[in-house]
Amino acid sequence: MRNRLPSLLTAARFPLALGLLAAEVSTRFLALYLLCCLTDVLDGLAARRLNACSAFGARLDSAADLAVTAVLVWRLWPLAAPDPWLTLWICVAAAVRLAAALAARLRFGRFGFLHTWGNKCTGVLLALYPFALVLTGSRWTLVIVLIAASLSSLEELVIECRAEQWAPDRRGLWEKR
């Protein structure tokens, strides 16, 4: 049972995502989203602590993250009501991130993302974004997230194009491998 705990925490994000889909965007929505964030943090900690890391767990985690992200975009996009320039910026940042993953696939046979400090900071900002949007209603929080996402995407693309081997735990462009 202990070795299943990380996967159970990860799998809990799927019904939580459905709850986000059904909930009005309010404090209940934010409470469910907070549970999604907590399970995302705790599943990785539990996997490492229990020595239960696995390829299946990593794929399940990515699928759960994608499910929650898709629901957030679906539910929060109308509230953010970004202008066309912000929409274009989002698409360009996502395209650069995808190009980095494709570069890793072509060069090293692995489709994946790096765990750089830039990506971690972007992840934290993305995690905080729904709270900032719902509580303040300001679109400026999206601009801050987009700046971080753009810089970390570019960094990852440069790393993947210059790297000599696949190194998913590389901390940043400055780190030699």
Rank of each mutant, 00 (worst) to 15 (best):
Leu45Glu: 11
Asn51Ile: 02
Ser150Ala: 15
Ala163Asn: 12
Asn119Cys: 06
Val68Asp: 03
Phe14Leu: 15
Arg4Ile: 01
Ser26Met: 04
Asp169Gly: 11
Leu126Glu: 01
Val143Thr: 07
Val71Ile: 13
Leu32Thr: 05
Thr141Glu: 02
Pro82Asn: 05
Val96His: 13
Asp169Tyr: 08
Leu135Thr: 15
Asn3Cys: 05
Thr141Ile: 11
Ser54Gln: 08
Ala127His: 01
Ala55His: 08
Ile159Leu: 13
Ala63Asp: 00
Cys36Asp: 00
Arg13Ser: 04
Leu76Lys: 01
Asp43Gln: 07
Ala46Arg: 01
Asn3Leu: 14
Gly57Lys: 00
Ser54Pro: 00
Trp140Val: 11
Gly57Gln: 03
Leu34Pro: 09
Asp43Ile: 09
Asp83Thr: 06
Leu146Val: 07
Asp40Cys: 11
Arg2Ile: 08
Leu32Glu: 01
Leu126Gly: 03
Leu66Cys: 04
Lys176Tyr: 03
Leu114Ala: 04
Gly109Asn: 05
Val68Thr: 13
Ala52Trp: 11
Leu35Thr: 08
Leu60Lys: 01
Asn51Thr: 02
Lys176Cys: 04
Pro168Ile: 03
Ala70Cys: 13
Leu135Gln: 15
Leu50Asn: 07
Leu146Ile: 10
Val124Arg: 03
Ala31Asp: 03
Ala99Met: 14
Met1Trp: 06
Arg13Asn: 08
Phe56Asp: 01
Ala167Gln: 07
Leu30Phe: 13
Leu18Glu: 05
Ser153Pro: 09
Leu157Thr: 12
Ala163Met: 10
Ile144Gln: 04
Arg105Ser: 11
Pro130Ile: 02
Ser54Lys: 08
Phe111Arg: 03
Ala167Asn: 10
Pro78Arg: 10
Gly137Asn: 04
Leu38Val: 15
Gly19Asn: 12
Thr136Phe: 07
Ser26Glu: 07
Ala67Arg: 02
Pro168Trp: 04
Leu88Asp: 05
Arg49Cys: 09
Ser54Ile: 08
Trp174His: 09
Ile147Ala: 15
Arg177His: 10
Leu50Glu: 02
Arg171Ser: 15
Val41Leu: 13
Trp166Met: 13
Cys121Ile: 15
Arg139Leu: 05
Leu42Met: 14
Asn3Met: 11
Lys176Gly: 02
Leu5Met: 09
Arg59Asn: 04
Trp89Lys: 07
Ser7Ala: 13
Ala58Tyr: 04
Ala52Glu: 10
Val134Ser: 02
Phe111Ser: 02
Ser62Tyr: 05
Leu88Ala: 15
Leu114Ser: 02
Phe111Gln: 03
Gly57Arg: 02
Leu154Cys: 09
Ala63Thr: 02
Val134Cys: 02
Trp77Val: 06
Asp40Gln: 12
Gly137Trp: 02
Asp65Val: 11
Leu126Asp: 00
Leu135Ala: 15
